[in-house]
Nucleic acid binder design. Structure first.
Length: 467
RNA sequence: GCUCCCAUCGUCUAGCGGUCUAGGACUCCGCCCUCUCACGGCGGCAACAGGGGUUCGAGUCCCCUUGGGAGUACCA
């Protein structure tokens, strides 16, 4: 049988980190085995599902590069089919109508809780002969009363549930719309899903779903329940933890491959290896190596990976993702040096793309003022001779890293100053601050005109400060 | 409450009965490199939750306790 996996989010918010990881695992599994990966939108909850959420999920998938082979399918477009199945279940006696009121159910639950029992529907409507006047019934699946359901989970191992612990769950609301446990089963069967890789929180639903499948005469797929992702504090991931949306990581300057690499290592491992290319992940991914305990999201490790990928990627690739952040800062790369050159000079000194964008503003825009601390330290009267010599030298020297470097060195020698006493004032003069790539590269990229002009500005600053 | 799941450094993890005086990575702290910031190099701190078994031998198997988590909806 061919391998098919799926990612089935409900569109009630953005694509979050936990969902992104199960999507990644499912995607990897399909890719590794030459199978297909299906995207299915579980939007049966009309109240909470939104079109914006659908778009956000699609956008997140695209940004991460998790392309799907089939879908997106929408469950709301399959209501007719679900209705057929529900009727079929009704006809075969596997389902029945329930006329119980909310109050009645609530009372039942309270009583069971009081008796230290697990609250569950007792099946009283099964005995009901006639419909209740004026009540639109829900439809319940008639769960077996005896025996047990065994899940041979690919990551959890053998998990057993007694049927006596389960109850007759609602598969259609009183308005006739189907509910989650029914639609999942129908779709997983009819879409030919062979491996269901999903969050741990669904483990409890699995025996119910397996029972429905059995009633419908189908073999259940293989299941792999992956543990949850916790926040930095070890608590359940929520909005309190800053970024939980995949797109927020883009906004904060992360490369998709860094996020993917981080996510694949969260709850999965291949020995001591930390860095995985997409090809390696696909080749090495094994469901058996998925951890069974929940793991906490650790932003600093993600940052480290991001820095790694910024360092290792081609300038072209960085440029592609950086343009978004440049735009956010109102920078037009055509108004300055070649962006690829600037990126090359900054790849080793940025942890995020946001940081990189901020660091290269001075290549493209005039800075407002010299950064106070750096200026106070480096733009002092004793720096003036060096700056003047540099201004003169830069006006006529060959415009290359080597020549500029030689000029700075020569200036230091002639004035009997340490390199730092020459290079650093020049850096502050040229960039406005005390941080930049090597001074020769920095100056070369800023350009002759601009550098000379800025040195003049620095000399004015020194003069003014002397008063 | 009940059912199910989980438990190695602060965090992510390796470990699938003896090779563990428990390895790697991130973080943090030193040192080196150095025109700034970084990169890089070297070194350091730091863990088998507790208690019972099983076994010649347990981080590794079993049980209990404790502590986390999930579910218990006409949500998914």
């Amino acid at each position: 049988m061919s391998i098919k996996t799926r990612f089935a989010p409900s569109p009630t918010g953005y694509l979050h980190i936990g969902g992104a990881r199960t999507a990644l695992f499912s995607w990897l599994y399909a890719r590794k085995h030459g199978g297909r990966f299906v995207l299915r939108i579980e939007d049966t909850d009309l109240e909470r599902s939104t079109a914006e959420s659908v778009n956000a999920i699609l956008e997140g998938m695209t940004w991460m590069g998790l392309e799907y082979d089939e879908g997106p399918f929408f469950q709301t477009q399959r209501f007719d089919r679900y209705a057929e199945i529900i009727q079929q279940l009704l006809d075969s006696g596997h389902a029945y109508r329930c006329y119980c009121s909310k109050e009645e159910l609530e009372a039942m639950r309270e009583e069971q809780m009081a008796n230290k029992q697990k609250p569950r529907y007792d099946g009283r409507c099964l005995e009901r002969e006639a419909p209740r006047e004026g009540v639109e019934p829900v439809i319940r699946f008639r769960n077996p009363r005896e025996g047990e359901v065994v899940i041979d989970d690919l990551v959890r191992g053998r998990v057993v549930f007694k049927n006596s612990e389960l109850d007759d769950l609602i598969i259609a609301r009183s308005d006739g719309s189907p509910t989650y446990n029914l639609t999942v089963v129908v779709d997983d069967m009819e879409m030919g899903i062979s491996y269901v890789i999903r969050g741990d929180d669904h483990l409890n639903n699995t025996p119910r779903q397996m029972n429905i499948m059995k009633a419908l005469g189908y073999e259940p797929p293989k299941y792999a329940h992956v543990p949850m992702i916790l926040g930095d504090d070890g608590k359940r991931l929520s909005k309190r933890h800053g970024a939980v949306s995949v797109m927020q990581y883009r906004d904060e300057g992360f490369l998709p491959e860094a996020l993917i690499n981080y996510l694949v290592r969260l709850g999965w491992s291949h020995g001591d290896q930390e860095i995985f290319s997409l090809e390696e992940m696909i080749e090495l991914f094994e469901v058996e190596n998925i951890n069974n305990s929940a793991s906490a999201f650790n932003t600093s490790k993600l940052v480290w990976l991001n820095q790694h990928y910024i360092k290792e990627s081609s300038p072209e690739h960085i440029a592609h993702h950086l343009s978004f952040h440049l735009g956010n800062l109102g920078i037009d790369p055509s108004e300055g040096p070649d962006i690829l050159e600037v990126i090359k000079a900054n790849q080793e000194r940025a942890k995020t793309l946001v940081e990189m964008a901020q660091n290269i503003v001075f290549f493209y825009k005039e800075f407002e003022a010299f950064e106070e601390k750096a200026a106070k330290k480096n733009l002092k009267a004793d720096a003036a001779p060096a700056l003047e010599a540099l201004r003169a030298g830069l006006a006529e020297c060959e415009w290359s890293d080597e020549a500029i470097h030689a000029l700075v060195e020569r200036t230091a020698e002639e004035l009997e100053l340490k390199m730092g006493k020459v290079a650093q004032p020049l850096r502050v003069a040229a960039t406005g601050g005390g941080i930049s790539p090597p001074i020769d590269v920095t100056v070369r990229l800023i350009g002759r005109e601009r550098t000379i002009e800025r040195i003049g500005r620095a000399l004015e600053y020194i003069e003014k400060s002397a008063d």
